[in-house]
Design a protein around this nucleic acid. Structure first.
Lengths: 213, 213
DNA sequence: TCCATTCTTGACTGGATCGTCCATTACCGC
DNA sequence: GCGGTAATGGACGATCCAGTCAAGAATGGA
């Protein structure tokens, strides 16, 4: 039988992700990854093909994880809590960006920004991911509408697209330099402006009360 | 007297921008720029310093242009048309992304994604730009509130941040692969969910009517 | 015309970088 | 143990790339 691998593939991919995340695709050297993982370049190339294939692997795994986080927060549960699940998800995403003190942003956004234009694999994978997120959001919005927490006259498809845009937008403006407090407020505001059923009223778009210390 | 420059600096910067825009910072070679501009590398280095300085220059000019577009669409005009100006601006931004068939995205987003983490100049400039856009949006929202087109109970600062997030988010989800029609709908929806003064009602978040050809 | 000054060009340098190669090592069924 | 199989890792080759440099060119004033 052949000699078995001496490394944990999962862990190597994690280290590689850190590198790509930190310095982008073009800015990352295979030697960096070799050093970060402790592997020789021969093993790296033997196991993953080349730099492009390795990145595709890392990027794909990341996209899967992004959808899984959304599924964990959104999918399933009673209609009565659908709005709470949506709120939890949007706030979680805002919090992730707000607490990203290193300003690394999201690998999905970074990879798409750098490569989607020229790399069909990256473009396809990121588009799939958007579609999957959209579906999850639409389903929850429909659930919230059934329970009367969101105006049922609104198009769930459109509201889902808006929320997805806000989530991805928070990431973008966060990387561009808006402060964490503002990012959190954006999540609040986006949820507050969702159309309520007639007769209900919401004041959450108003100015924040002065905080007591 | 010295020999005068034989090139138009503005045009050289434009060509350089095309290159950085197409292939990113790390992915662009100075030789590419030399070839694209027709200049020798010596002239390039003599006029702009080095690759980093040249990019800063290009990036800075782009940020200025982004704010100027927003100023052109937003600043000034009667309160009665403030909401229309906001709508025009958001739709323009959506249209820009929707019609970006090459999926180049916005250089601001691309540059920030690639460099903000490690380059304080880029980080600072992009943050300034966000702040400037935020101010423009807030001013217009306040104007629309004065005219009664937006609920005056809402915090203009928060609504401005939301709209900025939507605008930048449209760019992000567009690059990630959402189709142009969806992008346009997102702009519509974002404007439709802005809080109206009490007593007024809006149905624009509803499903799109079938379009007549 | 001649000079001082700056611009222009592209070959050149030194270092970086991708991917390969191969001698060596480790495993496991027999 | 033994041998077939595959992993290991670091040296290597070929290429790429940022930035430099020196020789020549263009300008306007003296």
């Amino acid at each position: 039988m052949p000699r078995p691998r001496a490394f944990d593939e999962h862990q190597v991919l994690e280290r590689a992700r850190e590198q790509f995340w930190a310095t982008g695709y073009a800015g990352t050297r295979m030697d960096d990854i070799a050093q970060a993982t402790g592997l020789g370049k021969g093993s790296l190339y033997g196991a993953f093909g080349d730099k492009g294939k390795l990145f595709h692997r890392v990027f794909g795994d990341w996209c899967t994880a992004v959808v899984e986080v959304a599924e964990g927060r959104l999918a399933g549960g009673p209609d009565a809590e659908a709005l709470a699940r949506l709120s939890g998800y949007v706030h979680l995403m805002a919090e992730n960006t707000a607490s990203d003190t290193e300003r690394r942003g999201c690998l999905l956004a970074k990879g798409a920004a750098e490569l989607a234009q020229h790399d069909p694999t990256v473009a396809g994978r990121s588009a799939e991911t958007m579609t999957a997120l959209l579906t999850l959001l639409r389903t929850e919005i429909s659930a919230a509408q059934r329970h009367g927490d969101i105006d049922s006259a609104a198009d769930p498809e459109r509201l889902a697209a808006l929320l997805l845009t806000v989530v991805r937008g928070i990431e973008a403006v966060g990387k561009a330099g808006l402060d964490p407090e503002t990012l959190r407020n954006i999540a609040d505001t986006a949820l507050a402006v969702l159309p309520m059923p007639e007769g209900q009223k919401r004041l959450a778009t108003g100015r924040s009360p002065a905080r007591e210390t």
